[in-house]
């Protein structure tokens, strides 16, 4: 193995240890104390929080912003795909033929979505005012990771690929990219809160 592969493995280890620490820290702190008499089913509400409540039909943040929402979904698909490919490379496995072409196609699309989201953040005054350097760095690193994965699948640019992967993995626990862990906790807490009060799963208004 080359030094840059060792670098990426070390970065992966640091990233995973940090994320596991964050995850277990949240778990160890437990549920927020609720002393009021429970009015609903927490399990069902948490399931709904991760499923029905995430439906684009339920969220204005999705159905009022369909282009951004779709771009965000594709961007995340690209991120997950890049991570899977990273592990495939790490275990010295091969992706060939149509799977490689499909992956490159998805990564080109997701990278374009990432660039689009970055341009939107730069151009739109409201988003710019909400943003800090971490927002830009996170976007640039994740998009670069996707681009370099796609390029590497065609041209094998290994040192650059592993260096960018390492940078992303080292940065992940520092900034907003750690929402990779906190997203799940946030959905859980929202489900717990609404479940306790009997708001979720939603009741249907009878006609």
């Amino acid at each position: 193995m080359f030094w840059y592969q060792w670098l990426a493995i070390a970065a992966l280890a640091i990233c995973m240890i940090s994320c596991i620490y964050l995850f277990f820290r949240i778990i160890s702190l437990g549920n927020p104390p609720e002393y009021a008499r429970r009015a609903g089913n927490i399990g069902k509400a948490v399931r709904y929080s991760f499923t029905g409540a995430m439906s684009p039909r339920q969220k204005e943040s999705a159905y009022l912003h369909l282009p951004t929402y779709i771009a965000g979904i594709i961007y995340h698909i690209g991120t997950f795909l890049s991570i899977i490919i990273f592990f495939i490379y790490l275990f010295d496995l091969n992706i060939g033929g149509w799977a490689c072409q499909l992956a490159v196609g998805i990564l080109i699309a997701s990278s374009l979505c990432g660039i689009g989201i970055l341009i939107k953040r730069i151009m739109k005054h409201e988003l710019r005012s909400l943003s800090n350097p971490d927002d830009y760095i996170s976007n640039i690193l994740v998009t670069a990771f996707q681009v370099i994965t796609a390029v590497d699948m065609i041209y094998s640019v290994w040192p650059a690929y592993y260096i960018i992967s390492a940078l992303l993995l080292l940065y992940l626990p520092l900034g907003k990219l750690k929402h990779a862990v906190y997203f799940f906790a946030a959905r859980y807490h929202l489900g717990f809160f609404y479940g306790w009060r009997g708001v979720w799963p939603p009741k249907h208004i009878r006609k």
């Binding site: 949240i26 437990g30 943040s61 951004t68 943003s131 906190y182 906790a185």
Partner: peptide
């Protein structure tokens, strides 16, 4: 500070899509 506060102070990705709500 507990699981809930820790989660919610770390979860916002500044997408701004909450504006219209």
């Amino acid at each position: 500070v507990g699981s809930k506060l820790l989660t919610h102070v770390n979860s916002c990705v500044h997408c701004g899509l909450c504006a219209e709500s």
